[in-house]
């Protein structure tokens, strides 16, 4: 992997010989297409077995019920593209959900309860990013530490009390816009915005450069440290947005860290085509990967895979997706 750093190509200058549209699409978004193909294939197969799979309700469950993971994975993808990792995001979402729910129940205006997790998430991740960028501690070390601190802190502060009696206006994830559930809309809008921003803004493109080779990026005048902090802060904002979807889906907030959430988010980001070595990948892929997991989870129930074998089949499908992408890359090189 280390020999191959596939940066998304710059827009070709007008008049230059442009390769065919599909070839370019395949070159730029190969892993995303593999994941998308897997999703489509699953939909076709399972719908043939049980047509209810494609009912509006089930589509809502698949796309909307896991939107918070996709939103968190967008920020995670950016962090990974920059060459870092964050294993503390699950704990962070747990902490932010408690803050948000507590404010909502305490009678603060709803917009404060929604804004607080975003701001606190940015603040926490500013500290993490600062330690990574300026104190030069590897991000896995900082976030492993932060994971412990937040997980332990959450329990000792809340004592594990659940938050109930949430005001109905707070529960935005249960509402819909233009007939579409809010989480779905948020997921799509954020993914598209983030993808455009990553591809076409100078800032976004500099992240690929930092992830590809931080020293070279520094030499070309990119303020690597500042950008690193900024990426973590943005990631914190996405974690905050994910928290809003997470905390408002039910009428109860569990004041514990959702089990293994960080692994789910990281898996979504990396399976979606973000090379863990940094410097490549897109946020579209991470969202598609979240949808893939959700589809797999739902599909296996629909086709009556023995519940005991569910996780093994999920693992096998993930592995197959990864290997398919690697074969694709090998074919290209």
């Amino acid at each position: 992997m280390s020999a191959v750093v596939d940066l998304p190509p710059t827009r070709p200058a007008s008049g230059a010989q442009r390769p065919g549209f599909f070839r370019r699409l395949f070159a730029d978004y190969g892993q995303e297409l593999v994941v998308l193909a897997a999703v489509v294939a699953l939909f076709i197969v399972v719908t043939m077995v049980n047509p209810r799979f494609i009912s509006a309700n089930n589509l809502t469950t698949i796309f909307s019920g896991n939107a918070y993971i996709a939103v968190a994975a967008i920020g995670m993808a950016m962090v990974i593209i920059t060459g870092h990792i964050d294993v503390s995001v699950g704990a962070l979402i747990g902490v932010l959900a408690t803050i948000s729910g507590t404010l909502a129940v305490a009678g603060y205006p709803i917009w404060i309860a929604w804004l607080a997790p975003v701001l606190v998430g940015m603040a926490v991740n500013a500290c993490i990013g600062g330690l990574v960028a300026y104190a030069r501690i590897p991000s896995i070390v900082v976030t492993l530490g932060a994971l412990s601190i937040m997980r332990g802190g959450l329990i000792s502060v809340t004592g594990g009390t659940w938050i109930t009696n949430l005001p109905p206006s707070f529960l935005i994830a249960q509402k819909s816009v233009l007939g579409l559930p809010v989480p779905l809309v948020v997921m799509v809008v954020l993914t598209v915005l983030a993808a455009l921003w990553m591809r076409y803004s100078a800032f976004g493109r500099s992240l690929y450069a930092i992830g590809g080779n931080a020293e070279a990026a520094l030499a070309t005048g990119i303020p690597v440290e500042r950008r690193t902090v900024a990426v973590f802060v943005i990631h914190g904002a996405f974690a905050g947005l994910a928290t809003i979807l997470f905390a408002t889906q039910l009428q109860v907030i569990q004041s514990t860290v959702p089990p293994n959430l960080e692994l789910t988010v990281i898996t979504a980001a990396v399976i979606g085509g973000v090379s863990i070595l940094g410097g490549s990948g897109t946020v579209i892929g991470s969202t598609l990967a979240t949808i893939l997991f959700a589809t797999i989870g739902s599909a296996l129930i629909f086709v009556n895979v023995s519940a005991y074998w569910l996780r093994a089949v999920i693992g096998l499908l993930i592995l197959a997706t990864v290997l398919a992408d690697m074969l694709r890359r090998r074919g290209r090189i």
Partner: peptide, 16 residues
């Protein structure tokens, strides 16, 4: 297959 270790072992984490 040149799969990065983190991705490979994330997948086998679920599989095993």
């Amino acid at each position: 297959f040149n799969v990065p270790p983190l991705i490979a072992t994330l997948a086998t984490l679920a599989l095993y």
